[in-house]
Each structure stands twice: as C-alpha cells, then as structure tokens.
Write a protein that binds this DNA or RNA. Structure first.
Length: 279
DNA sequence: CTCAGTGTTCAGTG
DNA sequence: TCACTGAACACTGA
C-alpha cells in the first residue's frame, strides 16, 4: 500500500537494517521494466562494496545514501515494498502490498541486498509499476526534483497553501493527487482528507473558501501524521476514518456513523465520498 | 472470464 | 503554452 505512510515505514525499516552496513552482495531480477533498462551488471557495480550512510525520502520516493555515488532510488508503484528476513522469533516485517510469501527471498523480488552483518533488504513488486533508478543527487534530479512539498515534512504554511489552490481549476481531489503539488498523497489519503474536511471532491480547487482551505490543510497534516505514527498499520487507524469503509465500490457501504458512501471516478481514480457530509 | 486496483506518464483536447 | 482528462502501462487476485 505505498502512499507516504507506507513509504516512510519502509524508510525506517531500511534504516534499521542497512545504515552503517556495507553491501556485501547484490542480486537483481532480470526485469527491464522495473529497472528502466539499467543492466544488472551496472547496478551491481554501482552498489557492491559501498556503505549505507542513510535512507532518504520525498513523497513516495525513497533512496539509499551510500558512501559513493550514484545512489539507488526506489518508487513502489502500486504493489512494491521492502521486506527483511524473518528474524529469530520476530514476525516478518513487510511494507509490501501483503505478505509476499513465507519463503526467502519472497516471490516477486526485484532487488536483494545482503549486508556484511548478514542482514538483508529486498524490494518486491508484483505488478511491475515500481521503479529502481540510479541518481547522482536524487533530490536535484527528476523525478524527485519535480515533486511538490512533502506532505509529512514540508507542508506549506496556511497562506501559501491557500495561494496554491487559488489558481487551480481542477477538482480538489485531482489536485491532492498531483505529486507536483503535494508529494506523497495517494488515493485513499486524498479521500480521507476531503471527508474529514467536509469538502466535496469535485469542487474546483479555486472555489474553496479560506476556511475550507484551512480545514483541508489541517486534515492533510493530521491524517498523514496519524498514519505515519501508526507505521501504516491500517488496523491502528481511528475507527472514525472513512478508510475502513471505502473499499470495494460497494453500493451499500456506510461510514461508522451510518452515512452513505458513494463511489465516483474523479481525476481518473475511484473516489469514495459522503455526499451528506461533504459540500 | 472479467474487472478493479494503494501510481505515474503521456497523448490528446480546449 | 498551460491546465486538465483519460488511456495505457503490467499483473494479481477477487
């Protein structure tokens, strides 16, 4: 489920396993789509023997900071994620779509890094919409340089946030999904934020009142913070969230308070919203 | 068998 | 050129 909270959780997982270690061995799947044409040889040469200094993230993009360049950059698409081996007596930790399997390495492994202390980090991606790239300076180069503010760490001050809405005619839902506006917001976060801010998803962004713009920003912040604090474990999201009731395009779906949920396509994506509450 | 899907990109439109 | 829309991408699992 890779929106910002899942990617941030993957960053923390990678940090724990990789930072301070040397990459002893690299295995790459033969997958020219996910690797964007990079050869396995090129990739292995870039990483092998280097030491991991840190793990960076902006929006849904993630990268390892090594003691030499270029650095590997990851985007999880719809179904990608990081996994680590089952530690002794410890539950398998996965940030992927769902448990990629009991085996090791897991099904759909695209990249496997083995560290000098025996630890491992694997990226899996069942549907191959994820990408692995090499960049000399990830923040300064596309696609990361094209992103807008990070929805966790870079939220714009209220005045600038409102100003950004003012000249956009797109439905506010579509604007929230625009990564060059708010990096890290995905489909369910956009719907959750609009529900909690009580704003109808088709409203043109520029039609929001100042009070609505403030609510939108405040809810964006609180939803992203709460999901990250829960380590993207949706069982721990508040029961009042639309999240728990929005899946499946079920015509009979209702919120925890019994409000009818409607499903429309907006900005090309399935949008769950509550007409009784959102105006 | 059909279809939806947590994301991004690009061609086409006005 | 800009803003925006919708299809395409690739594949699994319901």
């Amino acid at each position: 489920m890779p929106e910002l909270p899942e990617v941030e959780t993957a960053r923390i997982l990678a940090r724990r396993v990789a930072v301070g270690r040397r990459i002893a061995r690299v295995w790459c799947a033969d997958d020219p789509i996910v690797f964007g044409g990079l050869t396995s040889l090129r990739f292995r040469r870039a990483l092998s023997g280097s030491r991991v200094r840190g793990v960076g993230r902006h929006g849904k993009h993630l990268w390892l900071e090594l003691d030499r360049r270029p650095w590997p950059c990851f985007h999880f698409g719809m179904t990608g994620g990081f996994s680590t081996p089952r530690a002794r007596g410890v539950k398998l930790i996965s940030s992927g779509d769902r448990d990629p399997g009991d085996g090791w390495p897991p099904r759909f492994t695209k990249l496997r890094l083995v560290f000098d202390d025996g630890g491992e980090l694997v990226m899996t991606d069942a549907r191959r919409l994820g990408r692995i790239r090499l960049r000399m300076d990830p923040r300064a180069e596309p696609p990361i340089s094209e992103l807008g503010f990070d929805a966790l760490l870079g939220l714009l001050p209220p005045a600038r946030f409102s100003a950004m809405l003012a000249d956009r005619g797109a439905p506010v839902k579509a604007l929230l999904l625009d990564q060059s506006f708010a990096a890290g917001v995905g489909n369910w976060i956009a719907d959750e934020v609009l529900y909690q801010a009580r704003i109808a998803p088709r409203r043109p962004a520029r039609s929001l009142t100042p009070a609505e713009a403030r609510r939108l920003r405040a809810r964006l912040r609180s939803v992203v913070h709460a999901a990250v604090a829960a380590r993207a474990d949706s069982d721990r999201y508040p029961r009042s969230w639309l999240f728990h009731h929005r899946w499946g395009r079920d015509a009979a779906a209702v919120t925890a308070r019994g409000e009818k949920i409607r499903h429309d396509t907006i900005g090309g994506r399935t949008t769950a919203w509550v007409p009784a509450i959102q105006r």
